[in-house]
Design a protein around this nucleic acid. Structure first.
Lengths: 190, 190
DNA sequence: ATTATCTATAGATCTATAGATAATGC
DNA sequence: ATTATCTATAGATCTATAGATAATGC
């Protein structure tokens, strides 16, 4: 049942993308290797030909997902600094994002899990978060780079926290209120 | 091996406190009922005399931990509004808190897990988070209650996000930088 | 007599590996 | 001949339950 080299690469990519979605949806411990491979259309045993371990896959899936996210933000920033911050907020601080963790921010969905896991996943998360904070920094209003960086870090933290909170509370009105409060604070000078 | 009624209540309380610590340290899936009971000095089978399920215990442990946290914040607030915000930030946005999740904020440590779990745990988290936001609201500088509430929600989100980020990144300097940026933003008007 | 805790286990997972199978690509 | 994927399984978990044990408290 061997497949072509091209197909192997496609299979591997499909495992990574499936994992990126399922880990964000269900958490690292919420999905097993067997179910993950089944979702990718392959069988359990084949997994270890592609990856050393489940944790290795998490690192690769996190790197993949965050890279795409950083590129999206860079795209907004390239369209001009005035609207970029609004667009980033409108993509991040919404019910759409809150209700679709599988396609959303990996820091929010997996940050607590990754904090307890090995160095590869933490590296991937750190690079992704740094990339997003770098985009934010350019959009800040501070007088110098040091001030802009401080602002960017604080804004980013507020976005991550808002999404974690909006997903965890059981009160829809409160959930939306949190997202909107942070969205409003994004464009304020500070 | 029956024990006195008094001892039963003490045992139950010890299970809750042990669970509150271990769930925050290791995540909901990171600690099993057997190990948890062992840490509390009891055997596995006894657990189901005290709680209906592991998830039930999570809800109770989360309620317990957040209640204590809200009371601490209320204590700071009672000492006067000027220093209260600094004290809250100095308790929350520190390496000490970052490195001791077992005694820290349940929203940060378990928010992503609880978002995927049943209604009881989400209820406990929502009540705790609402309590903390209510304390913050009184300390805000806004002109009316609506504005103060918006400020409090945004500040709280930034604190939660800062801790999640500071624990997840693998770069000590960046981790501290995030905590300090949010600490600085706490006392700023906005 | 009641009941809190104990030991033991059922039944269902989980990650990782061993060895078989069959299609690719030299 | 090589190798990507398959089936099958080892060994270690996990939650929850059943029934035994022994101390409390009527």
């Amino acid at each position: 049942m061997k497949v072509s080299r091209e197909q192997v690469a496609l299979n591997r990519q499909r495992i990574v993308e499936t994992a990126a979605r399922l880990f964000r949806e269900k958490g690292y411990d919420g999905i097993g290797v067997a179910d993950l491979m089944k979702s990718a259309g392959l069988t359990h045993g084949g997994f270890y030909g592609h990856f050393e371990s489940k944790e290795d896959l998490l690192a690769e899936a996190t790197a993949h997902a965050l890279k795409k996210s950083v590129e999206r933000w860079q795209g907004y920033a390239a369209q001009g600094p005035e609207t970029a911050l609004d667009k980033i907020g409108q993509g991040y601080l919404t019910e759409q994002h809150r209700d679709n963790p599988g396609a959303g921010c990996s820091v929010t969905a997996l940050g607590a899990d990754i904090a307890r896991l090995g160095p590869k996943a933490r590296r991937a998360l750190t690079e992704g978060a740094s990339g997003q904070m770098a985009v934010l920094q350019k959009l800040m209003s501070g007088q110098d780079d040091a001030e802009k960086r401080k602002q960017a870090l604080a804004k980013y933290a507020s976005m991550v926290g808002a999404l974690v909170l909006s997903r965890a509370v059981d009160d829809e009105a409160l959930s939306v209120e949190i997202l909107q409060a942070v969205q409003a604070s994004l464009s304020s000078t500070q």
